[in-house]
Design a protein around this nucleic acid. Structure first.
Lengths: 140, 140
DNA sequence: CTAGGTGCAAACACTTTGCATCGGG
DNA sequence: CCCGATGCAAAGTGTTTGCACCTAG
C-alpha cells in the first residue's frame, strides 16, 4: 500500500484529490478531468490517469474496475458494493452489509487461495426509470 | 434474445461454437481465435468478435465482462459465479448456490429497478499458489 | 539541487466498423 | 439470388508511456 517515497503533493494531485472528495459520484478519469480542468485548465488526461493510479496504490483513492466499462474512481476508502445503471452508466453506492462469508464458501468450492469478492449490481436508476418506462432507449 | 432472422450457420460460426463447447475454460476472443484457426486458418479476429457477440445475443454463448480485463466467453448458458486468478488471469467456475435474495436487498437499499447481480471472486489458483509461495511474481 | 511529476504526442491493447466480396438458405 | 457473413485494413476507445522540461521538498 505505502510506497517508500512519501507522496509529493503537487498542485495537480491536490486538486484531483480535492475534486474527487467533493463528489459522491464515481467519475471516470475523463469525467474528473473535465472538473479538474476548471481549476487547472492545462492539466492533461495522462496526469489524471497517473495520479489516480498512484493515489489508489497509496490507498487514498479507490479504483473500481467495472466489468466491461471504463475504470471509475472514488475517494471513499471503505468497502461497499456498487450498482450501475444499465441505461446511463452511472454508478451508485449500495448501502447494505457485505457478505464476507461467501468467500469462505467459494474458497472451499474451488481450491483457490486468498479469495476476495466483489458484487456488482446492475439495474435501472430512478432517473432513467422515469425517463423511459418502456425501456427501449438504444434500440430505436 | 431471439432475433427476427434465424442464425445462418456458417462454417466459421459452427467451428467457433464447437470449439467453445469443447472447452471448460473461459477463453478470450483471441485465445479462441488461436484454437479456431487450427481448423479454419484464414478466419479473422473480427469474425470471432462479431460471432461471439451475435451468439451471446442469441443466448447460445455467455459473454463475461470481467472487471478490468478483456471479455471472456463461455458456452455454458446456466448462471454461475466465476473466480479469476490474480496471477495468471484464468477464470474458473465456482460451484456454489447463487444468492438471488441480495438483489431484493439491494433494490430496496438504492431505489433501482430491475436489479440483477454478479459476484466476481478473485484469488490465487492452485497452480499459481504452487508456483509462487512467496507471491511476488510481477514485482521482481 | 534532484528525484519525482508534468504536458504532449505517440504507442498500446482490445474491440468495432466500412467495404468489397462470398456463400447459406 | 439476395441478404447476412466474411476478411482485411482502418478507425475507435480507453489507457499507458517516452521524453524533455518543470517543481516540491
Amino acid at each position: 500500500m505505502n510506497s517508500l517515497h512519501p507522496l509529493r503533493m503537487t498542485q495537480q494531485r491536490r486538486v484531483i484529490l480535492d475534486e474527487l472528495r467533493n463528489l459522491t459520484s464515481h467519475p471516470t478519469a475523463d469525467e474528473l478531468h473535465l472538473l479538474v480542468r476548471k481549476r487547472l485548465p492545462k492539466i492533461s488526461i495522462s496526469t489524471l490517469y497517473r495520479n489516480l493510479e498512484i493515489l489508489s496504490a497509496s490507498g487514498l483513492v479507490r479504483k473500481m474496475d467495472v466489468a466491461g466499462q471504463r475504470k471509475r474512481f472514488d475517494a471513499t476508502t471503505s468497502k461497499h458494493y456498487h450498482i450501475r445503471c444499465d441505461k446511463c452508466g452511472r454508478v451508485d453506492d449500495v448501502h447494505m452489509d457485505l457478505i464476507p462469508t461467501i468467500e469462505e464458501i467459494a474458497r472451499s468450492a474451488c481450491r483457490y487461495e486468498s479469495v476476495s469478492h466483489r458484487v456488482e449490481f446492475t439495474g435501472i436508476c430512478p432517473h432513467c426509470a422515469e425517463d423511459e418506462p418502456f425501456e427501449r432507449r438504444d434500440e430505436l
